[in-house]
Write a protein that binds this DNA or RNA. Structure first.
Length: 433
RNA sequence: GGAGAGAUGGCAGAGUGGUCGAAUGCGCCGGACUCGAAAUCCGGUAUACAGUUUUACUGUAUCGAGGGUUCGAAUCCCUCUCUCUCCGCCA
């Protein structure tokens, strides 16, 4: 949610930025009309309440006269009438306000679709094979690592049984991610490597968060605008999370955090559930796009001045993690159409998949400023006593997708997979599986 | 799942229809005393929104959340959430 005062002060800017993101049906002038009406009515209602309070104070401990009671009744009627109108107007106003996307930074490329994302860095090169590389699902199925038929029998399409060494490899990935993010020395090296000397080297706190959240919480995070993506628990006011971010970012809802506690850095592991409505027939092979997958997610709460560098830091971590696996990838500055409603900027990492001959997204980093903190009322009390909204950043540490990249990039002619060196300690030292 | 108790400011804890945004204590901030500190004393110490004479003042709202009764609700009623105790069940 944007600051209404900011919209009042910059209506043209907000309208333009909204359109650049591809939101064609949002009318800022209309929102400001609602805002003005609402404030006018609010003043009226508050005046009536003030009159009522004065009348009540007059009565104090003594018995009210019939005239006073009569006057009070009239006032109550008018207050109730005003409040009813205000509630209706309020509903329209908040709906309109929440629909306004965050204002993208000027450095974000303007584009109409993800095709206009800009490659800003590339790591490594496409590996050469003296045989025809296979798809990850061909290898995984041959190895007995992937069973989709039985999963379909049990839960339907887009579910899998992952088995055997691939499961060990997945757990190795989580271990590698957690060990990196909880180690200040490694974080310092990443900070130095990225030229971000001012960034704190405070380690991430590992978290196993709830995998469900109430409607109220989901709405506050501004992430339930996609009900076609999120599973609802029948008979309960609960939704299955589509990312650890959904239960990490609202952790400090309604709280004022002391500045000394910032930055708060969390790395949460959870299973994510997505309905993937509207993607029928897309990416049905293998385990690239599932209804259920696991993910290690980073979440940061910082002050306003440090949030941009925090975002760059999270991206640097993502690049570092993929580099330690030796996977060729591109870093993309996402364009206005692709960064999403709450973002002012966003970065994707796309990894090369030789078995499919294309790049696919493994990581995303969202720079959100105070857009989520505002409805969540997550604030910081600065050392000088002033209270401000915190800034939030979230970014993927690892999902299961890098496993796909490992299988396809490090496959052998025999159909084995070479284990990346950094994962071997978690694989009993094995070099290939 | 059943029975009961409860939720008040940073914390503890008064308050059962009327000057209650809320006693008191602790904590915190400022001041006095002191060479300094402790102790003591004095003063201050919530958040959000709106308005204005816009670094200050005024108004409104907030006593878990939402709704209701009433001239008037922290206080009465209803619904929900959470916490605690006991029973049952379970990892």
């Amino acid at each position: 949610m944007l600051d209404i005062q900011f919209i009042r002060d910059n209506p043209e800017l907000v309208q333009r930025k909204t359109e650049e993101k591809g939101y064609k049906n949002i009318n800022i002038a209309e929102l400001l009309r609602l805002d003005e009406q609402r404030r006018g009515l609010l003043t009226e209602v508050e005046d009536l309440r003030a009159q009522r309070n004065i009348l009540t104070a007059e009565m104090k401990g003594q018995k009210p006269s019939p005239e006073q009671i009569e006057q009070g009744k009239k006032l109550r009627e008018r207050v109730t009438e005003g409040e009813t109108k205000l509630r209706e107007l309020d509903g329209q106003y908040w709906l309109a306000l929440k629909a306004v996307p965050n204002v993208s930074l000027d450095i974000v490329p303007v584009g109409a679709s993800e095709d206009e994302n800009v490659v800003i860095r590339t790591y490594g090169e496409k590996p050469e094979f003296d045989f025809t590389p296979k798809n990850h699902w061909e290898i995984a199925e041959a190895k007995g690592w992937l069973d989709k038929e039985r999963a379909a029998k049990i839960a339907g399409n887009r579910f899998v049984y992952l088995k055997g060494d691939l499961v060990l490899l997945e757990f190795a990935l989580w271990q590698h991610g957690l060990n990196t993010l909880t180690n200040p020395e490694k974080l310092r090296a990443i900070i130095t490597g990225a030229g971000l000397q001012n960034v704190s080297d405070k380690p991430f706190t590992p978290v196993l968060p709830p995998a469900m959240a109430r409607t109220e919480v989901y709405q506050a995070t501004g992430r339930l605008n996609k009900e076609e993506q999120t599973y609802k628990i029948e008979g309960e006011d609960l939704w299955l999370n589509a990312s650890a971010e959904h239960t990490l970012s609202p952790m400090y809802i309604d709280e004022i955090l002391p500045e000394v506690e910032l930055p708060i850095r969390l790395v949460g592991y959870t299973t994510a559930f997505r309905r993937e409505a509207g993607t029928y027939g897309k990416d049905t092979e293998g385990f690239l796009r599932l209804h259920q997958f696991n993910k290690l997610e980073m979440e940061s709460f910082t002050t306003a001045e440090t949030s941009f560098e925090e975002h760059l830091f999270l991206v640097a971590i993502q690049e570092h993690l993929m580099q330690t696996l030796g996977l060729h990838h591109q870093v993309l500055e996402k364009c206005t159409a692709d960064i999403g409603l709450p973002n002012v900027k966003g970065v994707d990492l796309n990894v090369w998949l030789p078995g499919q001959g294309q790049y696919r997204e493994t990581h995303t980093a969202d720079y959100i400023t105070d857009y989520q903190a505002r409805p969540m009322k997550t604030r910081v009390r600065r050392t000088d006593g002033t209270i401000e909204l915190v800034h939030t950043n979230d970014a993927t540490a690892f999902s299961q997708r890098p496993l796909i990249a490992i299988i396809e990039n490090f496959q052998t002619p025999e159909g084995d997979v070479i284990v990346p060196e950094v994962l071997r300690p978690y694989m009993g030292g094995r070099e290939r599986i």
